[in-house]
């Protein structure tokens, strides 16, 4: 039991740090780092549930694989947006993209 709780607490703290980063940073790439931390925390949770609650259910492990896919995709699309943003306005600071509000 204490193993599961420890893993969940670690994941919770990492999720909190990631949320703080994603909300407080002004740079697009730093925001992406916050999101990656949150996804990593959710993956710890999934693995802990697999190991300590349902070691026979391998759909949980497959879910971790899907989460890794999401991380990689988030990276790729985020960098593409950052590239285009840098090309058009010369910076990836999100404070300067207020014109997107319309």
């Amino acid at each position: 039991m204490e193993l599961l709780i420890t893993a969940l607490i670690i994941a919770a703290v990492l999720f909190g740090i990631g949320l703080y980063g994603a909300l407080s940073q002004t740079n697009l790439v730093m925001i992406m780092m916050g999101i990656e931390l949150m996804l990593g925390a959710s993956m710890i949770n999934l693995v802990a549930f697999w190991r300590y609650l349902h070691p026979e259910a391998f759909s949980i492990q497959m879910f971790v694989l899907i989460a890794m896919t999401v991380m990689a995709l988030e990276g790729a699309v985020g960098f593409a947006i950052a590239t285009q943003r840098f090309r058009t306005s010369g910076s990836v600071e999100m404070e300067e993209s207020a014109e997107l509000k319309g």
């Binding site: 969940l8 607490i9 994941a11 919770a12 703290v13 999720f15 909190g16 740090i17 949320l19 703080y20 980063g21 909300l23 407080s24 940073q25 002004t26 740079n27 730093m30 600071e93 404070e95």
Partner: peptide, 21 residues
């Protein structure tokens, strides 16, 4: 120093962590 809405972010992070724990 590239932060905005720092206090809200810290509050959100702490509250979410406490809730999950």
């Amino acid at each position: 120093d590239m932060y905005h809405q720092k206090n809200i972010s810290i509050a959100a992070g702490v509250i979410v962590t406490v809730l999950i724990v």
